[in-house]
Amino acid sequence: MIPPIADRFVAGESAESALEHARSANKQGISCILNQLGEHYGDSTNAEADTHAYLDLLEALDNSDVSACVSIKPSQIGLDIAETEFRENLARIVQRAHNCDNFVWVDMEDHQTTDATLHAFESLSTKYDGTVGVCIQSNLKRTRNDLKHLADLPGKVRLVKGAYDEPSAVALQEKSAVDEAYRAHLEFMFEEFDNGIAVGSHDPAMISHAKSLYEEYRTPFEIQMLMGVREDTQRELATEYEVWQYVPYGSKWPSYFYRRVRERKENLLFALRAIMTK
Protein backbone atom coordinates (compact mmCIF):
# COMPACT_ATOMS: atom_id res chain seq x y z
CA MET A 1 0.00 0.00 0.00
CA ILE A 2 1.31 3.45 -0.95
CA PRO A 3 1.57 5.76 2.10
CA PRO A 4 -0.25 9.12 2.06
CA ILE A 5 3.02 11.04 1.69
CA ALA A 6 3.66 9.34 -1.67
CA ASP A 7 0.18 8.96 -3.14
CA ARG A 8 0.23 12.57 -4.28
CA PHE A 9 2.71 11.53 -6.98
CA VAL A 10 1.76 7.89 -7.66
CA ALA A 11 -1.69 6.63 -8.66
CA GLY A 12 -1.71 3.40 -6.69
CA GLU A 13 -0.07 0.06 -7.35
CA SER A 14 -2.45 -1.34 -9.96
CA ALA A 15 -3.66 -0.46 -13.44
CA GLU A 16 -7.17 -0.23 -12.03
CA SER A 17 -6.13 2.50 -9.58
CA ALA A 18 -4.38 4.40 -12.39
CA LEU A 19 -7.52 4.21 -14.54
CA GLU A 20 -9.61 5.50 -11.64
CA HIS A 21 -7.23 8.43 -11.17
CA ALA A 22 -7.40 9.17 -14.91
CA ARG A 23 -11.18 9.08 -14.81
CA SER A 24 -11.13 11.69 -12.04
CA ALA A 25 -8.63 13.89 -13.92
CA ASN A 26 -10.76 13.67 -17.05
CA LYS A 27 -13.62 15.32 -15.17
CA GLN A 28 -11.34 18.33 -14.73
CA GLY A 29 -10.51 18.48 -18.42
CA ILE A 30 -7.14 16.75 -18.09
CA SER A 31 -6.14 13.66 -20.08
CA CYS A 32 -3.58 11.23 -18.68
CA ILE A 33 -0.39 9.49 -19.75
CA LEU A 34 -0.14 6.24 -17.79
CA ASN A 35 3.27 4.81 -16.92
CA GLN A 36 3.72 1.52 -15.09
CA LEU A 37 6.88 2.10 -13.07
CA GLY A 38 9.88 -0.06 -13.96
CA GLU A 39 13.26 0.44 -15.60
CA HIS A 40 16.72 -1.02 -16.21
CA TYR A 41 15.67 -4.64 -16.35
CA GLY A 42 18.55 -7.03 -16.90
CA ASP A 43 16.49 -10.09 -17.75
CA SER A 44 13.86 -10.83 -20.36
CA THR A 45 11.32 -12.13 -17.86
CA ASN A 46 10.66 -8.69 -16.37
CA ALA A 47 10.76 -6.98 -19.76
CA GLU A 48 8.22 -9.45 -21.13
CA ALA A 49 5.98 -9.08 -18.07
CA ASP A 50 5.85 -5.29 -18.42
CA THR A 51 5.30 -5.56 -22.17
CA HIS A 52 2.26 -7.74 -21.49
CA ALA A 53 1.11 -5.30 -18.81
CA TYR A 54 1.06 -2.49 -21.38
CA LEU A 55 -0.73 -4.64 -23.93
CA ASP A 56 -3.39 -5.38 -21.31
CA LEU A 57 -3.59 -1.72 -20.29
CA LEU A 58 -4.23 -0.65 -23.88
CA GLU A 59 -7.04 -3.22 -24.11
CA ALA A 60 -8.50 -1.92 -20.86
CA LEU A 61 -8.39 1.65 -22.18
CA ASP A 62 -10.06 0.52 -25.39
CA ASN A 63 -12.93 -0.91 -23.33
CA SER A 64 -13.31 2.17 -21.13
CA ASP A 65 -14.41 5.78 -21.43
CA VAL A 66 -11.09 7.09 -20.06
CA SER A 67 -9.07 9.66 -22.03
CA ALA A 68 -5.56 8.30 -21.54
CA CYS A 69 -2.56 6.87 -23.38
CA VAL A 70 0.64 5.13 -22.21
CA SER A 71 4.31 6.03 -21.81
CA ILE A 72 7.17 3.53 -21.67
CA LYS A 73 10.84 3.60 -20.72
CA PRO A 74 13.07 1.73 -23.22
CA SER A 75 15.04 -0.01 -20.45
CA GLN A 76 11.72 -1.29 -19.07
CA ILE A 77 11.03 -3.40 -22.15
CA GLY A 78 14.48 -4.71 -22.97
CA LEU A 79 16.95 -2.03 -24.06
CA ASP A 80 19.45 -2.94 -21.33
CA ILE A 81 19.27 -6.54 -22.56
CA ALA A 82 19.46 -6.05 -26.33
CA GLU A 83 18.32 -3.36 -28.74
CA THR A 84 16.52 -5.98 -30.82
CA GLU A 85 14.48 -7.08 -27.80
CA PHE A 86 13.52 -3.50 -27.02
CA ARG A 87 12.44 -2.82 -30.59
CA GLU A 88 10.42 -6.02 -30.85
CA ASN A 89 8.57 -5.36 -27.59
CA LEU A 90 7.94 -1.71 -28.45
CA ALA A 91 6.61 -2.70 -31.87
CA ARG A 92 4.13 -5.07 -30.22
CA ILE A 93 2.89 -2.31 -27.93
CA VAL A 94 2.62 0.29 -30.68
CA GLN A 95 0.77 -2.15 -32.95
CA ARG A 96 -1.71 -2.85 -30.14
CA ALA A 97 -2.14 0.89 -29.57
CA HIS A 98 -2.75 1.39 -33.29
CA ASN A 99 -5.38 -1.36 -33.28
CA CYS A 100 -7.02 0.23 -30.23
CA ASP A 101 -6.84 3.76 -31.67
CA ASN A 102 -4.62 4.85 -28.80
CA PHE A 103 -1.14 6.34 -28.42
CA VAL A 104 2.31 5.40 -27.05
CA TRP A 105 4.92 7.80 -25.74
CA VAL A 106 8.51 6.55 -25.64
CA ASP A 107 10.35 8.15 -22.72
CA MET A 108 13.97 9.19 -23.11
CA GLU A 109 16.55 7.91 -20.65
CA ASP A 110 20.25 8.82 -20.35
CA HIS A 111 22.28 9.93 -23.37
CA GLN A 112 23.64 6.45 -24.05
CA THR A 113 20.13 5.34 -25.07
CA THR A 114 19.28 8.28 -27.33
CA ASP A 115 20.27 6.77 -30.68
CA ALA A 116 18.51 3.45 -30.06
CA THR A 117 15.37 5.22 -28.86
CA LEU A 118 15.23 7.59 -31.82
CA HIS A 119 15.89 4.81 -34.34
CA ALA A 120 13.00 2.79 -32.92
CA PHE A 121 10.73 5.83 -32.93
CA GLU A 122 11.56 6.69 -36.54
CA SER A 123 10.78 3.18 -37.74
CA LEU A 124 7.47 2.96 -35.88
CA SER A 125 6.27 6.52 -36.46
CA THR A 126 6.63 6.01 -40.19
CA LYS A 127 4.73 2.72 -40.07
CA TYR A 128 2.08 3.78 -37.56
CA ASP A 129 1.53 7.46 -38.26
CA GLY A 130 -0.31 9.14 -35.38
CA THR A 131 0.31 6.35 -32.88
CA VAL A 132 3.71 7.05 -31.32
CA GLY A 133 5.66 9.97 -29.84
CA VAL A 134 9.12 10.41 -28.35
CA CYS A 135 10.70 12.53 -25.62
CA ILE A 136 13.64 14.86 -26.33
CA GLN A 137 15.81 16.55 -23.67
CA SER A 138 16.88 20.17 -24.12
CA ASN A 139 19.99 19.81 -21.96
CA LEU A 140 21.71 17.53 -24.50
CA LYS A 141 23.99 19.33 -26.94
CA ARG A 142 22.79 17.15 -29.80
CA THR A 143 19.13 18.10 -29.44
CA ARG A 144 18.93 20.80 -32.14
CA ASN A 145 20.17 18.34 -34.77
CA ASP A 146 17.77 15.68 -33.51
CA LEU A 147 14.85 18.10 -33.76
CA LYS A 148 15.81 19.04 -37.32
CA HIS A 149 15.53 15.36 -38.24
CA LEU A 150 12.33 14.81 -36.27
CA ALA A 151 10.62 17.77 -37.94
CA ASP A 152 10.33 15.72 -41.13
CA LEU A 153 8.85 12.65 -39.42
CA PRO A 154 5.27 11.89 -38.39
CA GLY A 155 4.59 11.50 -34.69
CA LYS A 156 4.67 13.77 -31.66
CA VAL A 157 7.71 15.10 -29.79
CA ARG A 158 7.72 15.92 -26.06
CA LEU A 159 10.36 18.51 -25.11
CA VAL A 160 11.65 18.35 -21.53
CA LYS A 161 14.64 19.98 -19.86
CA GLY A 162 16.25 16.65 -18.91
CA ALA A 163 16.45 14.96 -15.51
CA TYR A 164 19.56 12.81 -15.92
CA ASP A 165 22.99 13.74 -14.53
CA GLU A 166 24.84 13.81 -17.84
CA PRO A 167 28.56 14.57 -18.40
CA SER A 168 29.57 18.01 -19.64
CA ALA A 169 30.89 16.52 -22.88
CA VAL A 170 27.33 15.80 -24.03
CA ALA A 171 25.08 18.05 -21.94
CA LEU A 172 24.68 21.63 -20.76
CA GLN A 173 25.39 21.98 -17.05
CA GLU A 174 24.09 25.41 -16.01
CA LYS A 175 20.38 25.84 -15.39
CA SER A 176 20.36 29.12 -17.29
CA ALA A 177 21.92 27.44 -20.33
CA VAL A 178 19.34 24.63 -20.24
CA ASP A 179 16.53 27.19 -19.98
CA GLU A 180 17.94 29.13 -22.93
CA ALA A 181 18.19 25.95 -24.97
CA TYR A 182 14.62 24.96 -24.06
CA ARG A 183 13.34 28.32 -25.30
CA ALA A 184 15.30 28.06 -28.54
CA HIS A 185 14.15 24.47 -29.15
CA LEU A 186 10.52 25.47 -28.59
CA GLU A 187 10.91 28.30 -31.10
CA PHE A 188 12.32 25.88 -33.68
CA MET A 189 9.52 23.38 -33.09
CA PHE A 190 6.70 25.90 -33.38
CA GLU A 191 8.23 27.29 -36.55
CA GLU A 192 9.18 24.01 -38.26
CA PHE A 193 6.77 21.35 -36.97
CA ASP A 194 3.33 20.98 -38.52
CA ASN A 195 1.85 19.68 -35.26
CA GLY A 196 2.64 17.22 -32.50
CA ILE A 197 4.43 19.50 -30.03
CA ALA A 198 4.26 18.52 -26.36
CA VAL A 199 5.59 21.05 -23.86
CA GLY A 200 6.81 18.92 -20.96
CA SER A 201 7.50 21.50 -18.26
CA HIS A 202 6.25 22.90 -14.95
CA ASP A 203 8.21 26.12 -15.49
CA PRO A 204 5.74 29.03 -15.82
CA ALA A 205 8.23 30.92 -18.02
CA MET A 206 8.47 28.06 -20.52
CA ILE A 207 4.72 27.53 -20.61
CA SER A 208 4.20 31.25 -21.15
CA HIS A 209 6.76 31.17 -23.97
CA ALA A 210 4.94 28.26 -25.61
CA LYS A 211 1.63 30.14 -25.40
CA SER A 212 3.22 33.18 -27.08
CA LEU A 213 4.70 31.02 -29.82
CA TYR A 214 1.30 29.47 -30.42
CA GLU A 215 -0.20 32.91 -30.91
CA GLU A 216 2.49 33.64 -33.49
CA TYR A 217 2.63 30.34 -35.41
CA ARG A 218 -0.71 28.65 -34.53
CA THR A 219 1.09 25.30 -34.40
CA PRO A 220 -1.02 22.85 -32.34
CA PHE A 221 0.54 21.89 -29.01
CA GLU A 222 -0.22 20.30 -25.69
CA ILE A 223 1.10 20.83 -22.18
CA GLN A 224 2.33 17.88 -20.11
CA MET A 225 2.93 17.91 -16.36
CA LEU A 226 3.51 15.32 -13.66
CA MET A 227 0.84 14.05 -11.32
CA GLY A 228 1.18 15.84 -7.98
CA VAL A 229 3.02 18.90 -9.27
CA ARG A 230 1.22 22.25 -9.76
CA GLU A 231 -2.14 20.54 -10.16
CA ASP A 232 -4.05 23.78 -9.61
CA THR A 233 -2.17 25.21 -12.57
CA GLN A 234 -2.95 22.10 -14.62
CA ARG A 235 -6.65 22.57 -14.03
CA GLU A 236 -6.44 26.27 -14.85
CA LEU A 237 -4.51 25.63 -18.09
CA ALA A 238 -6.99 22.91 -19.09
CA THR A 239 -9.72 25.52 -19.44
CA GLU A 240 -7.87 26.95 -22.47
CA TYR A 241 -5.31 24.39 -23.66
CA GLU A 242 -4.87 20.66 -24.14
CA VAL A 243 -3.31 19.36 -20.91
CA TRP A 244 -1.99 15.87 -20.22
CA GLN A 245 -0.90 14.61 -16.82
CA TYR A 246 1.88 12.02 -16.58
CA VAL A 247 0.56 9.40 -14.14
CA PRO A 248 2.95 6.76 -12.74
CA TYR A 249 1.67 3.70 -10.91
CA GLY A 250 2.82 0.28 -9.76
CA SER A 251 4.67 -1.57 -7.04
CA LYS A 252 8.01 0.08 -7.87
CA TRP A 253 6.81 3.44 -6.55
CA PRO A 254 9.46 4.04 -3.81
CA SER A 255 12.35 4.88 -6.16
CA TYR A 256 10.15 7.16 -8.24
CA PHE A 257 8.79 9.01 -5.19
CA TYR A 258 12.22 9.58 -3.65
CA ARG A 259 13.51 10.86 -6.99
CA ARG A 260 10.69 13.44 -7.07
CA VAL A 261 11.59 14.55 -3.53
CA ARG A 262 15.32 14.81 -4.33
CA GLU A 263 14.60 16.91 -7.42
CA ARG A 264 12.73 19.61 -5.52
CA LYS A 265 12.29 20.01 -1.78
CA GLU A 266 9.00 21.76 -2.57
CA ASN A 267 7.60 18.40 -3.66
CA LEU A 268 7.97 17.02 -0.15
CA LEU A 269 6.31 20.13 1.27
CA PHE A 270 3.41 19.66 -1.18
CA ALA A 271 3.00 16.06 -0.06
CA LEU A 272 3.13 16.94 3.66
CA ARG A 273 0.63 19.75 3.16
CA ALA A 274 -1.72 17.36 1.37
CA ILE A 275 -1.64 14.97 4.32
CA MET A 276 -2.32 17.72 6.84
CA THR A 277 -5.33 19.00 4.92
CA LYS A 278 -6.99 15.59 4.42
Rank of each mutant, 00 (worst) to 15 (best):
Y256R: 06
D115C: 10
S255C: 04
A177N: 10
E59S: 11
T131L: 01
E263A: 05
E180T: 14
V178G: 05
D203Q: 05
F270G: 12
Y241R: 06
F193P: 06
E236S: 15
C32F: 05
P74R: 02
V94T: 13
H21G: 06
R158H: 00
F270T: 13
Y241G: 04
T117K: 01
D194F: 06
R87G: 04
Q173F: 02
A47N: 03
A15T: 15
C32V: 08
E166Q: 02
H111I: 11
S208K: 13
S64R: 02
Y164V: 06
E59G: 11
E48W: 00
L34T: 08
A60K: 15
Q173L: 02
P220F: 04
D232Q: 13
I81H: 09
L237E: 13
I93V: 15
V160I: 13
G29S: 01
Q95G: 03
R8Y: 03
L55Q: 03
S31R: 06
D43G: 04
F86G: 06
Y217N: 07
Q112L: 15
A47M: 05
Q36T: 07
K73I: 07
S255L: 07
A82N: 14
L79A: 13
R218E: 12
A68L: 00
L272H: 04
P154H: 02
I77R: 06
E240T: 15
K73Y: 04
T233C: 12
A53I: 04
F270K: 14
L213Y: 01
P3I: 05
I136L: 13
G250M: 04
M227Y: 15
K252F: 11
K127D: 00
D115V: 12
S31H: 09
K73D: 06
D115W: 07
K265E: 15
S208Y: 10
E174T: 07
Y214F: 11
A25R: 12
P220I: 04
N195V: 08
K252P: 04
T131N: 06
L57F: 08
A97T: 02
K211L: 14
S251L: 12
D56F: 09
R264P: 02
S123A: 05
E59Y: 02
L58D: 01
V229L: 14
E192K: 15
P74W: 04
G78D: 11
S212C: 09
A274E: 12
F121H: 00
N139C: 15
C32P: 03
F103M: 08
K175R: 10
D7A: 05
T143E: 05
E191C: 03
K265Q: 15
D129W: 01
A18H: 07
W244P: 00
L90N: 08
A22R: 00
A177D: 14
L268M: 13
P248H: 11
A171I: 00
A271D: 09
K141E: 07
L118E: 01
R96I: 03
G162W: 01
P4C: 07
K27I: 03
M189H: 10
I136C: 14
T51L: 08
V134K: 06
M1S: 14
F270E: 14
A210V: 01
L140R: 03
E216T: 10
D62P: 03
S208D: 15
C100G: 01
Y256E: 06
R96M: 05
I207L: 12
E191A: 10
D56S: 14
G42P: 03
H52C: 07
I77G: 02
